[in-house]
Design a binder for these strands. Structure first.
Lengths: 344, 344
DNA sequence: CTGTTAGCGCCTTCAC
DNA sequence: GTGAAGGCGCTAACAG
């Protein structure tokens, strides 16, 4: 009973043929007899042979693997995204390595280094909320390794593919929707200020107010670190401080959920019957308050598109020529107000 | 401008030293001068050197990577689990490859093969609902590669480490809780029959009935494929068919949620005011029905323990000697009935 | 169709 | 403390 796992040489030895032939047979090369293939496959199975991809990848200088970096896997948007990515990757024969930055730049940097060290063929990334530049991603551009941003991107990396949503427009639509419903004092629950997407959502918010002759009041804008508790606290802060609001535009789902929880728990009412618009494709939004209007951004679709683009860039062999920015327009979904017990 | 990425030989060449020295310097070997180290590091940075882990791993015959196989990343339980796993792995210097079987045995088998081909140092797995034996996992035992089951395991693999919960006892407690609250006709929303954990939960359900002199009625047991729609349909089926129930024991969170949704939507009431106990650590349960009693199984803790065990097995070098089964006892959490508008 | 040869980039003896 | 040499397992190039 020998220790080491069998290699192609082992198979070659017992079969009295050359290891190259074994390699070709195992890879279903057309330049090898079916008879030989059968023999090789049979012996491989018999010996319990398991191909060593490390060696193969090293030799071929490609791994058929793409790295995915997201802030946090437990966020519904990102797990939908991963579902979409995996679907595309899988059917194209790529493996996926999923890594979470946990919203920390430091971790993100280490992850990226590691993905490079593991020689991934390309990378999909939605940056952490501490990331305000793409210095740690320059390696990819410099070495012509495809990289695609999705959702959260870096503004200082022009000439890099991205799949993003039109945050400014979406925010504009959301706020306009509230205004049309009669809201005049609309609070904005924002996200980390470093992230491009939240800057743009704020911009859309302001523009909508401006276009409808409503004065911008900075007291109504509350940022967050994307925790449910932040939304909760923001709602609490406004309402208990007697700041008068009649609508909320939440730039992220967790804020919206936190806000709703606060309102429910304290039986607070917001005068007008439309109240909250939140970016979200969280199924939870449908449950907690059937009337919650959302700006639907399908993580699944975004993941698919981003992965499609990446694989296209990988296979075309030249990252730089194929740069492309895909801008999606999420739709405003106004759910039926079935159960408006809290007055929201 | 040369094409290939710089290697240790490249660094060695320009520094007029041997590549072995460079290798040692880069690995912080104690047998190399600090001065040399500095030179090497400086030059590495200057050239934009990125270590090739494929080569390193091949040579060292270990990858410092553990594979994680779960049914579906978007299930809250599993994403908590991953958070726990990553925390432990990260601090021990291991990388993690996360793969989802999407509940398909076929996919699971391919994933496992791929992880083997990538020479992971160990594997953590919670099997798919189609998996009723561990044939595709025998390789690990045969080659002495550590494997740890968590949550969902295979009964035909004795002598394999696992971190599981005491499903039978937990179910027993849940049903007993309902009985004490006065329920007599308790429906059981189960899961895929192939999975050990659901068999055990059913066993606990039956035993609790038996011990309290309640006759077991098979019509009250409804299995599912773990979709929210199944819970919804099960509740609908029972209530519209006039089958009389006064309590539900849901063996998984999605069933519980589906059931609650059905009840809410149709304003159905269950006579007694205790109604549903569901396995869950989903935050959603707290939102949709604050009074939903749950059997709390912390995915985070399970992930941490499983990963701890795995890494211990990896580092001790002998998988077989260190087999260990950890059985956790989840706690029953009865939430305050704050807002019982639907009569649930 | 199959064999020979020569590495991929790194690490680890073994010398000195 | 550093150098020389060999090989991890696989595949690509070139013969034949």
């Amino acid at each position: 009973m020998k220790k080491g796992k069998p290699t192609i040489h082992e198979i070659a030895r017992v079969l009295n043929i050359n290891s190259s032939t074994v390699s070709r047979a195992l890879n279903n090369s057309s330049r090898v007899t079916q008879k030989t293939k059968d023999k090789v496959w049979a012996k491989a199975k018999e010996l319990g042979y398991q191909r060593n991809l490390l060696a193969s990848n090293l030799r071929r200088n490609q791994t058929n693997t793409i790295g995915v970096v997201i802030p946090r896997i437990s966020r519904h948007f990102f797990s939908s995204t991963i579902a979409g990515i995996e679907e595309v990757a899988f059917t194209s024969g790529f493996n996926v390595i999923i890594c979470q930055s946990l919203e920390e730049l430091d971790r993100e940097q280490r992850i990226v280094k590691n993905l490079i060290a593991n020689r991934v063929d390309g990378i999909l990334i939605s940056v952490s909320m501490e990331t305000d530049n793409g210095k740690h991603l320059e390696y990819f551009r410099d070495n012509n390794i495809p990289l695609v941003f999705f959702d959260r991107h870096c503004e200082d990396m022009p000439g890099t593919s991205k799949v993003i949503i039109d945050d400014c427009q979406a925010a504009y639509d959301a706020v306009t929707h509230l205004i049309r419903k009669g809201c005049k004092k609309i609070a904005h629950f924002s996200g980390p200020g470093k992230l491009e997407i939240y800057k743009n959502r704020l911009k859309g918010y302001k523009q909508a107010l401006l276009d409808h002759q409503i004065t911008y009041d900075p007291r109504l804008v509350l940022s967050s670190r994307l925790m449910e508790a932040d939304g909760y606290a923001s709602a609490e802060k406004l309402l208990t401080n007697g700041i008068d609001i009649d609508g909320i535009f939440a730039a992220n789902d967790v804020s919206a959920i936190g806000a709703v929880k606060y309102l429910k728990k304290n039986d607070k009412k917001i005068p007008d019957d439309v109240a909250i618009v939140g970016f979200s494709n969280e199924p939870i939004s449908e449950v907690i308050e059937p009337s919650l209007t959302t700006i639907d951004q399908s993580g699944f679709e975004i993941g698919k598109m981003a992965c499609d683009l990446l694989i296209h860039n990988i296979q075309s062999g030249d990252n730089l020529v194929h740069n492309k920015t895909i801008i999606l327009n999420p739709t405003l979904i106004e759910r039926e107000s079935s159960n408006r017990k809290t007055g929201i």
